[in-house]
Amino acid sequence: MKIIFLSHPLFLGSNSMPRYANWLSNGMRARGHEVEIWQPKARFFNLPAPQSLKKWLGYIDQYIVFPFVVKKNIKKQPVNTLYAFTDHALGPWVPYFTKLKHIIHCHDFLAQRSAMGSIPQNKTGFGGRIYQKFIRSGYIQGENFISISKKTQEDLHFFLGNKKPKFSTVVYNGLNQDFSVQDAALCRHAISQLINKDVSEGYFLHVGGNQWYKNREGVIKIYNSLSLDKNYGKLPLVMIGPKPNQNLINERNASIFKDSIFLMSDAPDDLVKKAYSGATAFIFPSLAEGFGWPIAEAMASGSFVVTTNEAPMNEVAGNAALLIDVCPVDATQHNAWANKAAIDIISVLNNPEQKLSYIQLGAENAKRFDSEKTLDKIEALYNQIIEAN
């Protein structure tokens, strides 16, 4: 089978989607398929121009130049070629493939939901609403879809409206790295050296980006409450992710425990794995997610996981994590929310048998997200699309 993956351009600076496209293409190539990746090249984007115009020049590359290239190249492909969109946000290109064998991978519809005003924590401007409408006008013309969670599939069907897809199924993401339980003492020693503070007794951990839905400020609020406990109040908070934005910096600086809050930027993968295994608790109170990779990663690494009792976080976590309420929109309720979450976390930490049970269930749950099994499922679905009349 020949598979052509359509992917986001590299010049946008995002790593996650090109990495996902490479994971799919490498997996299918390893299974004996002929594979290509098609993505816009930076032609207009590379022209000397003010930074304020770069976005618009990128749009020319993506939505004017690239379609001409696509239409030309399609004519050279075998009839039974499968065109796989690695993200539904590539929707504007879908109309060029509706009469060809195609499938669309769907991640999260948070930008789409924000544009329609259903997420008060993330308001979208006029231009953003027009752009998301443009994306939707494309992907709703597709026929075949793979969603990474039931929540994503639910959102997909909502946005498709009255149109019923020919094919729609859920395939959970597979972990694209090897995560395993490591010696906690050795891992804590490595973290101690990095942050120049003794964490041999443990630490609280968060791993995630600066996106609004990651609720990094909420992690600090929970930590503030945890730090009042007589048994766990001396444990530091380690937060791993990109360079912190101003909101996170302000939240840290406002904490009376700020000297025990460590913001680690761009940590290498090996260190992230150690951080998971050495953590006293992994706290992941996202407001929303497309999937929630860190939940599965932490469980595979032997962490006690705390996450939000909302889809898809609870879908990924199953019964293997302590599930807490989602952080309320009303800022006046944030401290009460954080206090309750801290009480629930401390209750588990004070019960070693319960904590061990969560860890053991987590290790078993993480097996659901085996990368090779995920690729096998996706390959079978690709074949199904090719063989359909």
Rank of each mutant, 00 (worst) to 15 (best):
D370E: 14
V305D: 00
G290S: 06
I191T: 05
F179H: 11
L53A: 13
G58N: 00
G161A: 04
I220S: 04
P285E: 09
G32V: 09
T332C: 07
R113V: 15
N247T: 09
N26R: 13
N22R: 12
S277K: 02
I135V: 15
S118L: 11
L194Y: 06
P9Q: 09
N253D: 13
D61N: 01
Y83W: 12
G32H: 08
K151A: 14
G13Y: 00
R188S: 08
F5T: 11
S277G: 00
A317N: 03
S118Y: 07
I74C: 02
I283L: 12
G241R: 08
T81H: 09
L237R: 02
Q333E: 10
V69G: 03
K2E: 05
L110T: 11
I148N: 07
V199G: 05
Q211N: 12
T374S: 01
T374K: 05
Y96G: 09
M116Q: 12
V199S: 05
A42G: 10
G91H: 07
V316N: 02
P18Q: 12
I249N: 04
D229N: 13
I283C: 12
T81S: 11
K221S: 13
G202M: 04
R113Q: 15
K340P: 00
V199A: 09
K72T: 12
R188N: 02
K99T: 14
H157P: 11
N73T: 14
N80E: 14
V316A: 01
E372G: 02
L349R: 03
I385D: 04
W23V: 15
L235V: 05
F134L: 10
Y63Q: 15
P50R: 10
V170F: 01
G58L: 02
L100D: 01
L235T: 05
M313D: 08
V219L: 04
G302C: 12
E387C: 10
G27H: 03
N122M: 14
E143I: 11
G58Y: 03
V181H: 02
A298L: 05
S227P: 03
E379F: 04
E201I: 04
